[in-house]
Simulated assay, not measured.
Amino acid sequence: MTRPPSDTELAGLPAWLYPAGFWVAVVLLALGVLLPGYAFLGVVCVALVPVLAAVWVALGAWRRDRRLSVAALAALGGLAVVFVVKGFLPGG
C-alpha cells in the first residue's frame, strides 16, 4: 500500500513561507555586501527565519497536530537554553 504524498501545509508550515523568508534573507545579505552597515540586518534575518517558522508551526498546528507543535516548542526551548548557557560562558 502506498502512502499519498505529504503536503507541507498539513504539517503546519505553508509551502511558500520558508522559501520567501530565505529569499528575503539572501537579498538582505546581498545588501550587506554593498552597504556593510546593513550586514547585521541580513545575519539577523537568516537567524530569525527558522525561529519564526518554528513559532508559526507551534501556534498554527496546535489543534491539528499537537505532537508537531510540541516538537516545535521543544526546538524553541532548546534555542532558549543555548542563549541562557551562552550568557554564562566567558566572552558570551
Rank of each mutant, 00 (worst) to 15 (best):
M1F: 09
M1Y: 12
M1G: 10
T2P: 14
T2C: 04
T2S: 09
P4K: 11
P4D: 10
P4W: 05
P5E: 07
S6D: 08
S6Y: 08
S6R: 15
S6K: 13
S6C: 03
S6Q: 13
D7P: 04
D7G: 02
T8V: 07
E9D: 13
E9R: 14
L10C: 04
L10D: 13
A11D: 14
G12W: 01
L13W: 03
L13C: 09
L13E: 06
L13F: 03
P14K: 14
W16Q: 09
Y18S: 14
P19M: 12
P19Y: 12
P19S: 12
P19F: 06
A20T: 14
A20W: 08
A20N: 08
A20S: 14
A20K: 04
G21K: 03
W23S: 07
W23E: 11
W23D: 00
V24A: 15
V24M: 03
A25Q: 05
A25Y: 00
A25N: 03
A25E: 00
V26N: 02
V26I: 09
V27D: 05
V27W: 10
V27G: 13
L28S: 01
L29I: 06
L29F: 05
L29A: 13
A30P: 01
A30Q: 06
L31K: 11
G32T: 04
G32F: 04
V33D: 10
L34C: 08
L34G: 15
L35D: 08
A39R: 15
F40P: 03
L41T: 11
L41E: 10
G42H: 08
G42N: 04
V43P: 00
C45Q: 15
C45T: 15
C45H: 14
C45L: 10
V46R: 01
V46G: 03
A47M: 14
A47C: 12
L48P: 04
L48E: 11
L48T: 06
V49W: 00
V49E: 02
P50A: 04
P50N: 09
V51K: 05
A53Y: 07
A54N: 11
V55M: 05
V55K: 00
V55H: 01
W56A: 08
W56Q: 11
V57A: 01
A58V: 06
L59M: 12
L59K: 11
G60D: 06
A61G: 06
A61R: 13
A61V: 01
W62F: 11
W62N: 00
W62P: 00
W62E: 05
W62A: 14
R63D: 08
R64T: 03
D65F: 05
R66V: 04
R66L: 09
R67E: 08
R67N: 07
R67Y: 05
L68W: 07
L68V: 10
S69G: 07
S69N: 02
S69K: 01
S69V: 02
S69R: 00
S69F: 00
V70W: 10
V70T: 03
A71D: 02
A72R: 00
A72D: 01
L73H: 00
L73G: 04
A74H: 01
A74C: 09
A74L: 15
A74Q: 02
A75K: 02
L76W: 12
L76E: 01
G77I: 06
G78H: 10
G78E: 07
A80C: 07
A80R: 12
V81S: 13
V84Y: 15
V85F: 05
K86V: 06
K86C: 06
G87Q: 10
G87M: 07
L89E: 14
G91Y: 02
G91C: 00
G92P: 00
